[in-house]
Write a protein that binds this DNA or RNA. Structure first.
Lengths: 326, 326
DNA sequence: TTGTACGCGTTATCAT
DNA sequence: ATGATAACGCGTACAA
């Protein structure tokens, strides 16, 4: 069933049916005729042909490192809710933490297929930037602040500073830091930088032995915590870049019969589900992940509709949630 | 940049370029010429035109109730990994638990746009079935066993029976059950049915006051547990249909100074992250969610390629993980 | 092994 | 307000 057959059955021309479907001028009489035939036949216009003609797919390509992550899926939820309002759908590029696949998806989405791209990434390499530069649809980056590109990101630097100040306020003085590799400019680099600067501002010594970087996992948190304890440096608190890391840290501290928060305070970033559930409940910074998805959706829709390439930078804040771990 | 321009630049006809792109016979000489031009120009064929011509999008429509859920996102992860292997991508229909949107997505995907549909649903109404019947692309349903449709689902009935037997084995005798609404045939109906049948098989009395159904949430678990306790029926264990429900139950029991597992045993289904983390750690049934996604991917790809409409039913098992709550 | 000619289903243009 | 016609970019019989 196609537009020509509908036209024939309705006794009008293809053009009129097309106009009817796209809010053009059609007489009331013809409107009724056409609607009747469409109802009877269950006709739906071919999206292929429409896309070929209009160069529009109403699709947003969303590239994510791993969909089965609490933070990522919240971001995607936000994006999806927002863009759906405007009739857009999501083409999902789940890269499984594989940078090669990330590049692959950028290439797939590059030329056509989608009207806009939202890239949720942890590490942006030169290779990424090379391809992104050549992309001819609007792009928004979530979670990282990349020069010359519109980004929705979190205030990682000040988040770390906040955590240090909070610990100091609670009389903790010898603070360790467990984060992730600095190739992740946001979670790795910025959170560590904030930590160091905050120590300096508070006239505390920066002991680089107490700054460890690993992966986004409970196991990594556990391992690095063990390493720090083996140093016998008499620390009284640990800042964890993520809740998952904090989980490993807590496990390790418990095994060593260290009481949280009496012997050692633990604090982290994320406010994930587990942070409310583990004993002790983790004092943490709530990050507005779903909001970042919503904002990214708004920005990309705007770019698509207005065709304006203004550089948009949105830095989202955080909210301190005190629980039991400090 | 289109295929004609590539042809002109390469000094061959459009047809030859098309053949080159689609593995047809092209002389070595021309192959080199064309490849060179493609590399220089960065030409990528228009997916719109290709789709119009071939009636194939290489897209799988995946409809889910809420992407920001641990189980759902694991399923989607599995689907995505599997279908990507065959060059398919995912068009995500995130319905935000809104049945109307579910129907909407089924309609969007119905006629074209995708080569196949995977529906991850909790409740399948008559309205759903009406639309699904009219869909002319292959469809696979995940999480529910629907008559006449290919489904990947879990053995919910026997899972409940297993849990009852496990409790009895540990000398629990007065068992309550907290589940979800029975309009969810899998999590609601089947799990409750298994519970009741298992009691009967073990010659235990079925007390319908001790069977409560609510929502998929911690709050619901908390509330229903409170209701059960207020009955003063002297229960010694509670089976929870999901980990989230168990979480609320545990909270409630703790508040009432009931020791888990000494005073009351708690057991559930899901093996979510929180089940390993909460105190006490929850004894639970691991469900193979990612696997169900992978299987769904395999089935849909098969249906698309072989055009066979064999009815495929895959029932996945479970794995008992004993921790601390019984 | 290559090229010509046509069609996929829609929208845009222009004339009426 | 309506219709004829071209064009979007590609794949594929068919002929050569």
């Amino acid at each position: 069933m196609n537009i020509s057959e509908i036209a024939k059955l309705s006794g009008v021309s293809r053009t009129t049916v097309s106009r009817f479907l796209n809010n053009g001028y059609v007489s009331e009489e013809n409107k009724k005729k056409i609607q009747k035939i469409i109802d009877e036949t269950g006709y739906v216009p071919s999206s292929y042909a429409k896309q070929l003609r209009t160069k529009k797919t109403n699709l947003i390509g969303v590239i994510v490192p791993k969909i089965s992550s609490e933070t990522i899926s919240r971001i995607v939820d936000g994006i999806s809710n927002e863009v759906n309002k405007f009739g857009y759908n999501i083409l999902l590029g789940n890269t499984d933490l594989n940078i090669k696949k990330e590049i692959e998806y950028l290439n797939i989405f590059k030329n056509n297929q989608v009207d806009g791209i939202i890239l949720v990434a942890t590490v942006i390499t030169k290779k990424h930037l090379e391809i992104i530069k050549k992309i001819n649809v609007p792009i928004v980056i979530v979670g990282q602040n990349i020069k010359d590109y519109s980004c929705i990101y979190h205030d990682d630097y000040n988040a770390s500073i906040f955590l240090v100040n909070k610990l100091i306020e609670k009389n903790y003085k010898n603070i360790a830091f467990i984060g992730v590799d600095k190739s992740d400019k946001a979670v790795g680099y910025e959170r560590e930088r904030g930590f160091i600067d905050a120590l300096l501002k508070n006239n505390l010594k920066v002991d680089y032995d107490l700054i460890k970087n690993g992966e986004f996992s409970t196991e990594s948190g556990y391992k690095l915590c063990k390493e720090i304890l083996s140093l016998n440096k008499d620390i009284d608190s640990i800042i964890c870049a993520t809740d998952n890391i904090a989980l490993g840290v807590i496990e390790c501290l418990k095994e060593n019969n260290l009481h949280i928060p009496k012997n050692i305070g633990v604090i982290s970033i994320g406010d994930s589900k587990i942070s409310k559930v583990v004993t002790p409940k983790i004092s943490t910074l709530h990050y507005h992940y779903k909001t970042s998805g919503i904002e990214a959706g708004k920005v990309i829709i705007n770019k698509i509709n207005n065709k304006n390439d203004d550089l948009i930078k949105i830095k989202l804040g955080y909210e301190y949630i005190e629980r039991e771990s400090i």
